[in-house]
C-alpha cells in the first residue's frame, strides 16, 4: 500500500493509460482524482473500479488547457484532500496515429503543431502551476509527465505530436531543476506504442509487427505496463530521481 493516505491527480483518466494509472494508484491505497473532460460515464466507471481496487477516487471534470477550470479542480482537491502528493499529466490533445495516412511535414500546418503543443505542454503548464502551492507548502511532491519514445526514436514522423512531446521533456527538465530545491520531483514516462487505447485502436497489425520485431521484449505495451514506472516515479521509491525520462517500450529505445 505505497499510496495510502496520499492524493494523486491523474489527468485524462477516464480511459486508456490514464484509467489504468488511476486503478493502479487506487490498488496501492491512494485517493485518486480522476480528471476527465467530457466522458463523465467513463470517469465514473473508473471511480468505481478504483474503489473496487481498494482505494478512494473522485471524478472531477476540467479541461486542463483552460486555466480557470484547472484552478477550480485544484481548489476542490484542496478542500477534499488538503494535499496533492503526485500529479500525472496524462491528458493530451486528440490525435490519430495512422502511419498509412499521416500528414507529412509539408502537409502539416502550424495550427496542428499549436494544437499538440497546447494539449501536451499548455495543459501540463497549467496543472503544474495550480498544484504547486499545495506541494510547496509541504515541501514535497512528484510530477510525472507522459511523453513518448517517439521523441528519442521517431520511427514514424508524427511531426506535431512528437514535437510537442519533445517540448514537454524539455519543460520537465527545467521544472525539475527549479523545483528540486523545493523538494518536488519532475520526471517523464515515455511509452512506445500502447495498445489498446482509443488513440491506437486503428493501428494496423503490420505496424505492430514491425515494432515488435525491433523490440527486445517482443511485444507491444499495454496500458498496465505503463502503470509500474509511473507509480515508481510518483512514489518515494524514486525519491532521488528527477529530470529523467523513463522509456517504457520493451527496449525499443535504449538511452
Amino acid at each position: 500500500m505505497k499510496f495510502r493516505d496520499k492524493t494523486i491527480l491523474v489527468t485524462g483518466a477516464s480511459r486508456g493509460i490514464g484509467a489504468a494509472l488511476a486503478k493502479a494508484f487506487a490498488a496501492e491505497g491512494g485517493l485518486v482524482i480522476v480528471n476527465y473532460r467530457r466522458s463523465e460515464a467513463a470517469a465514473q466507471a473508473v471511480v468505481e473500479a478504483c474503489r473496487a481496487a481498494g482505494g478512494q477516487a473522485l471524478a472531477i471534470a476540467a479541461d486542463v488547457t483552460v486555466p480557470e477550470e484547472v484552478a477550480a479542480m485544484v481548489a476542490v482537491i484542496g478542500e477534499e484532500a488538503g494535499r496533492i502528493d503526485a500529479v500525472v499529466n496524462n491528458a493530451f490533445a486528440p490525435y490519430v496515429f495512422d502511419p498509412d495516412d499521416r500528414a507529412r511535414f509539408w502537409e502539416t500546418p502550424w495550427s496542428a503543431y499549436q494544437a499538440q503543443v497546447d494539449g501536451a505542454l499548455k495543459a501540463t503548464y497549467h496543472v503544474c502551476q495550480a498544484v504547486l502551492p499545495l506541494m510547496r507548502q509541504r515541501g514535497r511532491g512528484a510530477i510525472v509527465n507522459m511523453a513518448s519514445d517517439l521523441v528519442a526514436r521517431p520511427s514514424i514522423a508524427y511531426h506535431d505530436y512528437t514535437t510537442a512531446k519533445a517540448a514537454l521533456i524539455g519543460f520537465s527538465r527545467n521544472l525539475a531543476t527549479e523545483l528540486g530545491p523545493l523538494g518536488i520531483r519532475v520526471n517523464c514516462v515515455a511509452p512506445g506504442l500502447v495498445y489498446p487505447t482509443d488513440a491506437s485502436r486503428g493501428t494496423r497489425e503490420a505496424v505492430k509487427d514491425m515494432l515488435i520485431a525491433q523490440t527486445p521484449l517482443g511485444r507491444i505495451a499495454t496500458p498496465e505496463d505503463v502503470a509500474g514506472p509511473v507509480l515508481f516515479l510518483a512514489s518515494d521509491w524514486s525519491g532521488f530521481v528527477t529530470g529523467q525520462t523513463l522509456h517504457v517500450d520493451g527496449g525499443l529505445v535504449m538511452s
Binding site: Q137, G139, P181, L182
Partner: peptide
Amino acid sequence: AEQVSRELA
C-alpha cells in the same frame, strides 16, 4: 522559508 525547509529535508 520553503528553501530552508527543503534544505533541512
